[in-house]
């Protein structure tokens, strides 16, 4: 019994669990400070916003576990949004076509990143940044700078809460993906190999892991989930915007890091990112509720990220 308690105590020191304590504190403060916080409409909106970021952050978690970073997430989301709206044109009849094209585009982007990093030996930072520019060029040409198209009834319904009034379709999709992501990271050979490559590339190669394959799969997962998040956003935005994805690079990376995944790779996982996503979304929401300006919000957000990372590092130093 005593060792069990000790075990829990040890685990709570790990960033990916510690972040849940911060989340609980944050939630309590928000509930006390703003009446109506727990209202269904508000909670539903909060979880919906979290879902889009959460889906994109799955891929980012994989990339950072490898010790890399994916900076093409933001523009991939925008591409998904633009493509989605333009193909749907307001009709559910186009859903299948949109889904296939978006899936293919995602695979193409991810494979492109993987190719650049593994075969052209480009730094992931540079490669994904370059890819990001290419994607931007593509949707600029595609839309001529003025995106057209419209959500379909089905896509819109995914963003409306039904029944209880809290749960939306996108939230359910996210939850399913959360379960899959955690399962893949913890229970599969692929997940183990990602951690191994992130922890020590040379030793991973010596251990017979096909590192190139791992890179390709990770970047494809990241791109596919990002473009899919952009597609889901069509239902939320109604039509498409060229800056719909803009904050998602910063926010997905922040969510992963706050969630305790080490930027050096090989440590962390989606369980922490999940809390990181909620924390990011709640923070922005709360600061908006208490009427802090955009500029002030940015500063506070940045400050909190830095403080959290300091806390994690102190923990590491004491080991």
């Amino acid at each position: 019994m005593e060792t069990k308690v000790l075990h829990i105590k040890e685990n709570l020191k790990k960033p990916e669990y510690f972040v849940y304590i911060i989340l609980a504190v944050m939630f309590t403060v928000a509930v006390i400070a703003s009446p109506g916080y727990l209202q269904r409409a508000h909670m539903s909106g909060l979880l919906k916003t979290a879902s889009f970021l959460g889906i994109a952050a799955i891929g980012q978690t994989f990339a950072i576990l490898l010790g890399d970073i994916d900076l093409s997430v933001a523009n991939t989301i925008t591409l998904g949004n633009v493509l989605g709206a333009q193909i749907l044109m307001g009709s559910d009849a186009n859903l299948g076509k949109a889904f296939v094209i978006i899936l293919l585009a995602g695979i193409l982007i991810g494979a492109g990143n993987g190719f650049g990093i593994r075969y052209l030996k480009l730094d992931p930072f540079i490669m994904t940044l370059g890819m990001s520019s290419v994607i931007e060029g593509v949707f600029m040409i595609y839309t001529q700078g003025a995106p057209k198209g419209k959500t379909s009834p089905f896509m819109s319904s995914l963003c409306r809460s039904a029944g209880t009034g809290v749960v939306t379709g996108v939230f359910l999709i996210w939850i399913v993906l959360v379960v899959i992501a955690i399962f893949v990271m913890k229970k599969t050979t692929f997940g183990r190999n990602v951690f191994a490559v992130g922890a020590n590339k040379t030793a991973a190669r010596f251990s017979g892991i096909n590192t190139t394959k791992i890179y390709f799969i990770v970047y494809i997962i990241s791109a596919v989930l990002a473009i899919f998040a952009g597609f889901l956003l069509v239902g939320y935005t109604g039509t498409s915007y060229l800056d719909v994805g803009v904050d998602y690079n910063d926010n997905s990376i922040a969510a992963v890091i706050i969630g305790g995944t080490a930027v050096t790779g090989g440590r962390g996982g989606y369980l922490g990112t999940l809390a990181g996503v909620m924390l990011m979304v709640m923070l922005v929401d709360f600061l908006t509720i208490v009427n802090i300006s955009e500029a002030g919000r940015q500063m506070i957000q940045g400050g909190i990220i830095i403080i959290l990372l300091l806390l994690y590092n102190r923990d590491k130093a004491s080991h």
Binding site: T188, R192, F195, A196, A199, N200, A203, F206, S207, G266
Partner: peptide, 27 residues
Amino acid sequence: EGLMLGLPVRDNLALCSLGRRARMGVI
């Protein structure tokens, strides 16, 4: 070349032979 120092003993020991204890990639 030999170890992922930051990873648990378990993950290191299991690494080379993961496939032998997995079905369809699930350990």
